[in-house]
Design a binder for these strands. Structure first.
Lengths: 209, 209
DNA sequence: TGACAAATGGAGATGACCTCCATATTTTGG
DNA sequence: CCAAAATATGGAGGTCATCTCCATTTGTCA
């Protein structure tokens, strides 16, 4: 799956140029303000070439996203191997915020793509989620973290952080979310913390609280 | 600001029809799959009429969103008036999840619009945020909730929940996030819980954890 | 009722997205 | 090293959603 086709020399070169330029635009946050055709010209290739390599905007995003995710996953594995489980989880989550802070444009772009529901990022997302799942599982096994709330909840929180990147006090609030998540995860509450969503029937049909 | 112009009778009627139809489409989640012109026809008005009333998709969304937010804000105020602060907050947040569960299409649409960064929803969002801020402030004043993490963090978490509505185990995970947030907010941790984001310089320029 | 203002609707201009293929470049085999 | 086969290129042009414009209709007020 990594080397589907040997790919000709010039093709490879163009592909690399496209990804490089894409990362630039991505990071600047202009990914959606730019006509796709213009992007081709910006990268110095014809429209057809761009479309052959990346049939859609999302495909291009996916290519850029891939490297990022790989880096983050590596980091997660490394932390897990060198730190106590709970600390590894905390460090990773705090680090994710730092990462998004540095790559704001990218965070914004990814959030947009996710919300658009294109699903093209599913693969990369799954890899990242797996890393988080592993971190949480290890902490649970250590007994440091409750077992009644899954890693999915943590992913949602991360997603919210990324999507809200343009709020005024973003950094502080993002750190706040992580603090809440980490403290909330710590197994140390009276009883079992809180019973999990058993209020399906509230009598009120509207769904309004 | 509520009654900018008296608006003629037929105009008002058309406007209402448009909003009603929009809510339908919204709730079905088809808001973005539908050509805007076709939406006009669906509502039984001409293209020009649609565009005069709502210059953009976002403007239309905003109109629908407005009522929803008003309802939710009312509910928040009511809870705050009748329950102990902490319980009011908990009930409201749990209720928000229930609300999003019932109105999945709407939640999806809103998340998309938010991420798109149109900013047209800013007003409605602010109203909702104010309600949450009040709930949190009251709980803090009661001493039931920590004061070192703001309401903004809670908003981010909610945002993440809404944006992720299409995950397989959405409901359970969403409830999980709320559980984490509520437990994390409870003032009861050793010391002060966690010092707030003072790790600006990690030495690593890349932002990767 | 008449006249003025407000609103309508749909035909058509605009511009982004994507396809297609004649041409150019790389690779392979003799 | 050369020819022919395979692969890639680029940009002109088709397609389609978005939005504008104005001749006509509808509502309002004296």
């Amino acid at each position: 799956m990594t080397a589907d086709k040997p790919l000709r020399a010039d093709a490879q070169r163009n592909r690399d140029v496209l990804i490089a330029k894409a990362r630039e635009v991505f990071d600047a946050g202009d990914f959606f303000d730019l006509r796709f055709d213009d992007f081709a010209q910006l990268a110095g290739v014809g429209t057809g070439t761009l479309y052959r390599h990346f049939p859609t905007r999302e495909a291009l995003a996916e290519a850029v996203y891939h490297e990022e995710v790989a880096t983050l996953c590596d980091r997660a594995r490394q932390l897990q191997a060198t730190l106590p489980a709970e600390e590894a989880l905390a460090t990773f989550l705090r680090g994710m915020v730092g990462y998004m802070d540095v790559h704001q444009g990218l965070a914004r772009t990814l959030a947009t793509l996710m919300a658009t529901g294109s699903g093209a990022l599913a693969e990369g997302s799954r890899a990242l989620e797996q890393a988080v799942t592993d971190l949480v599982a290890a902490a649970v096994k250590d007994g440091a973290v409750r077992d009644d709330v899954g890693a999915g909840a943590v992913m949602m929180a991360l997603h919210g952080i990324g999507a809200a990147h343009d709020r005024p006090g973003w950094r502080a609030e993002a750190d706040g979310v992580i603090t809440l998540v980490l403290d909330g995860l710590r197994r140390s509450h009276s009883g079992n913390g809180q019973r999990e969503h058993e209020q399906e029937s509230v009598g009120d049909q509207s769904g309004v609280p």
